[in-house]
Each structure stands twice: as C-alpha cells, then as structure tokens.
Design a protein around this nucleic acid. Structure first.
Lengths: 216, 216
DNA sequence: GGCAATTGTTGGACTCCGTCCACAAAAGGA
DNA sequence: TCCTTTTGTGGACGGAGTCCAACAATTGCC
C-alpha cells in the first residue's frame, strides 16, 4: 500500500471519517446514540451537516464502524478457508472463516451497536441497520455454499431444494453467531474473547447441516 | 366472542384499523410502499393524519398486518406443543409449533412485507420492522427452551452455556424459518403452502441441537 | 502567471416520519 | 344539565435524509 498520495486533482479533504467517528464517540458516551443529533456531531467535528453525508450514508453507520471493519475481512477469510468442493466442506469453511473473523474482537473494544442497543430509543434504528448488515453476509454465505453444493450427489434433491437449504443454512449460522455476539457483549467485564462464544453457538447448526449432507 | 358491544362510554370510533389497512393496500398496489405517504393513506381513508397513529405505531406496521396476525398465534401453539421437560422435547415443541403457525399461510395471501422488499427504497424501513418482530419471537423461544433446559443432565454445562445455547438455537431456528419464508415468497405462483418450506429449512437446525443434548 | 477541470465543502430548502398537545366532538352516567 | 371518558382533529415541532446551486482549494495544462 505505497499509494498513499495518488496526487489527484481537486480540493483536498479538510475533514475525514476519523474526525467524525471520534466526535460521535465522545457524544455517544455523553448523551447516548439516540440523544445525539447529526448536527451536534458535525459541529463538534468542525464541519457542516452536509459533509456528514459525504462520509456516511446514515447516522446509524456510526454504530457499526468497528463491526463493518471486521466484517470486511469475512470474504477473504472465506476464500482462504475454502477447501475442496462439496456442501460438507463448504460448511466447514464457513465455520472456520467465522471464527477467524471473530478472533479480531477481544474483551476490550465492544462496538457501539452492541452497547447502545438497550438504551431506550435506539432500538428501532439499530435494528434497521443491523439487519441490512446481516443480510449482506447472508448473501455472501449463501452464494459460497450454493456454488459448492452444485456438484453434490444430488439425486432426489431439486435445484429449489438446494437453494432453500443454502439460504437457510446461511441465515441460521449467521443468526447463531449474532446471538453469541449479543450474549458476549452483555457478559460484562468477565467476557473474554468473542470466538469461543461464537464457536459453541454455531457448532450445532453446522453439525446439523453436515449431517444432512453426509447421510442423505 | 359475544362481547362485540361492551357499550363503553366515550365517542364511538368513526374509523377503524380495517379502513386504513384497505386504503393502504390499494395505494401500495398503485405506488408501492415507499412511494406512499401516511397522508395519502389517511386522506383515502377519510381521516386525519393524527388518527393514523391511534391505530398503528409506525407506517411499517402496515407491511406486517398479516404476519403479525399469524405470529400472534405462536405463543399458544408453543404451549400446546409443549410436552415433557428437557431440551430435546423443547426443540421438538418449537419445531411443531412453527409448522403449525405456518399452516395458516397458503399460496394466496403473501404479506406485503414479503412482496415489497425489493421495490427500491423499501428495504431500509422494512428491515427495521422485520428485525423487531424477529427478536420478539426470539425472546419467546429463548425463554421457552431455557426454562425446559434447566433440569438437564448438566454436569459440565454452566448456566452461561445454557443461556447461550438457548438463545443461539432460538435465533438459528427462527432465521431458518425466515429464510424459508423468503424463498417461498419469491417462488412465484408455483409456491404451494408455506409449511413444507419451513419444515425442510428448520429440520437440520433442530437436528443439530437435538444431537447436542442427546450425546453430550 | 492564467485558465479550466476536478474534487471537497457549505448553506439552504425540501419531504417525510414520528411525537406532542390543546381542543373539539360524541357518547354514558350522575 | 354537568361531568367523565374516549376518539378525532389541527397544528407545531425536531430530526433524518435528499437535493442542489454556489463556493473554495488544489492540480495540470497552456
């Protein structure tokens, strides 16, 4: 990554994502997410309200900066964990890739999205932004598993069945991971790393889908 | 249900939920959900905008009238399907109760929430309202399973483990059901009843959690 | 140096959602 | 009749998100 200065034409940025993230972090601590307006954030960062939307598409993006950063590594992890073809191997790869991504989250930094979810008023907005991120990962996993299940033994399994199965597995395993993350966040100071939580949560789901493809 | 007229005091209603639902259904067909404002709905129904919020807490409630009606029967179905104590029996009960609720949805009436989800602009709002409903069912299932797992063989299983396991199962099985519902809705005219879709989707998840509790 | 093209920043206007409140209308009961 | 209860109404308000026309700062070319 040597191209830090591509020397493009045009006015250079006088602000940055980081400035807005910092300002919002301070205000969220003081006033909670719901109690903070975009205008307050931009004022503290020293920019105008319109500038905010040059860096974020919605206020709720600020809740997910850490999570998004971690999730950004998921596709690469998936490819790296991918082994041979076949649905069972695909389930294995998803399980490993999820744990690999979770390894980046220790007991220290818990994303805003997980700490502000019960703070009155935040719930609605948080859920909206949460599901949109969830579904993005769902399509990722669905495609990954679906592509590796085409060559399956098949037989009495229709195309629609495989599509349903892939998507159900994707949503189930990611939901289990999300559940684990929620429990982990609520665990307070005693929580250790995230990965063990996610590991125990997704194991039964993965086992169920593995059994489905090994027996049937 | 003979108490249709409890003859309460006060001004009788000149409007009704049904009027607003009908008006919104017409407008959603003409303009899509995102393209329809609350004012338009209330104008067509012949009431004022403020009245809308006497019957619905948010515009997005209109997307879920059918789903909410079906979901309302879920707690009762859960109790009815409940058998003996123990985590395995709890998983069985949840599986049966879910299928029982799905039996109410045939190929005819597909809720707005499922038809308008790709119609540009709707996505964000839809996801918000979707997750709030999803999480309501999650707490229901979590409590149900959690209460029936306390008497488990336990041994090397801590309380935190059981809490995590219950919640992960709840979210996973409901996510699989949601995935199936989505596939079913997108299946077009060829779709039959909803229950078979959900059945194949949640079976592996339930199997996985059953195995977890029978072996270990 | 002057000039255009490019990129970032700004303020303002706008729509819609959701909340709040004071008030009017329509009933029943005393 | 007066009081209480319930529902409908209009208006005002603040915040989110969109849009746009203007302005500012920099690069590269002539």
């Amino acid at each position: 990554m040597p191209d830090h200065e591509p020397k493009r034409a045009g006015r250079p940025r006088g602000s940055s994502r980081a400035m807005l993230e910092e300002a919002s972090a301070e205000l969220f601590l003081e006033q909670t997410y719901a109690g903070t307006t975009i205008v307050q954030i931009t004022r503290r960062a020293g920019v105008s309200r319109a500038t905010f939307f040059n860096y974020f598409t919605a206020k709720s993006d600020l809740l997910w900066v850490d999570v998004d950063a971690g999730l950004a590594r998921f596709p690469a992890a998936l490819e790296q964990c991918a082994g041979a073809d076949g649905p069972v191997q695909a389930v294995d790869a998803v399980e490993r890739a999820l744990l690999q991504v979770c390894a980046a989250f220790g007991p220290g930094q818990v994303p805003w999205a997980l700490t502000q979810n019960e703070l009155m008023g935040t719930t609605g907005e948080l859920e909206a932004s949460a599901l949109s991120r969830f579904m993005a990962q769902v399509t990722l996993v669905t495609r990954f598993v679906g592509a590796r299940s085409e060559t399956s033994a098949a037989g009495n399994e229709t195309v629609a069945d495989r599509e349903l199965s892939s998507r159900a597995f994707a949503m189930a395993v990611l939901a289990a991971a999300a559940a684990a993350t929620g429990v982990w966040a609520r665990a307070g100071v005693t929580r250790g790393a995230l990965a063990p939580f996610v590991g125990t949560a997704i194991a039964p789901v993965c086992a169920g889908y593995r059994a489905l493809h090994t027996v049937g």
